[in-house]
Computed example of a mutant assay.
Amino acid sequence: MTDQEAAAEEAKRALRRRLRTERAARGPAFAAERAPGLSAQLQALTEQLGARTVTAYLSLPEEPDTRAFLRWAAASGIRVLLPIIRSDGLLDWAEHDGTETIEATLGIPEPTTEALAPSALDEVDLMLIPATAVGRDGSRLGGGRGFFDKTIASMRECPPVYAVVHDEELFDSVPHAAYDQPVDGVVTPTGIHPTLRS
């Protein structure tokens, strides 16, 4: 690792710690109160792009709440693929059917349906992914394990990728390294924000 990469990693860790502390201080009620607004923005983006198959995720209590959007998608006939963490650090995907379980290792909620073949991602029209913070320049600060970066980097043709964060977690730029995958846009409870990359 070069000195520049090491400095970027330290800056990422520092910002991640600060924002996680802020999320914990606000508590789950903060995300719950803003869930209707976030769902409306996610619905608008899905309709704007004409997406019929999307990837999303089951949010943790202090993350922006995705469950209202998942309910809308199910009622609207939108196919949703949710991630399952693999032991090798990559992701499998499974269809959302309204059920979930808590994955024992990392405490991440996961679908209970059977994992699909990797080719299922070829049918995705929009990827909605979690983030700790995002920059208007397309830079994304994830959770630190690189699951989504690896997935996006491995895709031959990637659909539009939008990260989901609280309004307070959208910046002009966030610390990032060359291997961090940029996003096309950001969705917050108050708006849809295309990045400078898109």
Score class of each variant (00 low, 15 high):
A8T: 02
A8C: 11
E9V: 07
E10N: 09
A11I: 02
R13M: 10
R17I: 04
L19S: 12
T21P: 00
E22P: 05
E22T: 02
A24K: 14
A25M: 06
A29I: 01
A29S: 10
A29T: 08
A31S: 10
P36A: 14
L38N: 04
S39T: 02
A40R: 15
Q41V: 08
Q41T: 10
Q41C: 12
L42T: 02
Q43R: 15
Q43F: 00
L45P: 13
L45W: 12
T46L: 07
T46E: 01
T46R: 09
T46H: 06
E47A: 13
E47L: 15
Q48K: 15
A51E: 07
T53G: 03
V54N: 02
A56I: 04
A56E: 02
A56Q: 06
A56G: 08
Y57G: 00
L58A: 07
L58Y: 06
S59G: 03
S59M: 06
S59Q: 06
S59R: 11
L60M: 14
P61S: 09
P61L: 10
E63P: 01
P64H: 11
T66W: 01
A68G: 04
F69Q: 02
F69V: 04
R71E: 01
R71L: 03
R71N: 01
A73H: 02
A73E: 02
A74H: 05
A75Q: 09
A75E: 10
S76G: 02
I78D: 00
R79E: 05
V80M: 04
P83T: 02
I84H: 05
I84R: 14
I85A: 14
D88E: 08
G89N: 02
L91K: 07
L91C: 07
A94T: 03
E95T: 01
H96K: 01
D97H: 09
D97M: 05
T101F: 09
E103A: 15
T105Y: 15
T105V: 15
T105N: 12
L106G: 14
I108L: 13
I108C: 08
P109N: 14
E110P: 05
T112K: 13
T113Q: 12
A117D: 15
A117R: 14
P118R: 06
L121R: 12
L121W: 13
D122Y: 08
D122T: 11
V124A: 12
L126V: 13
L126I: 12
L128Q: 10
L128K: 11
I129E: 10
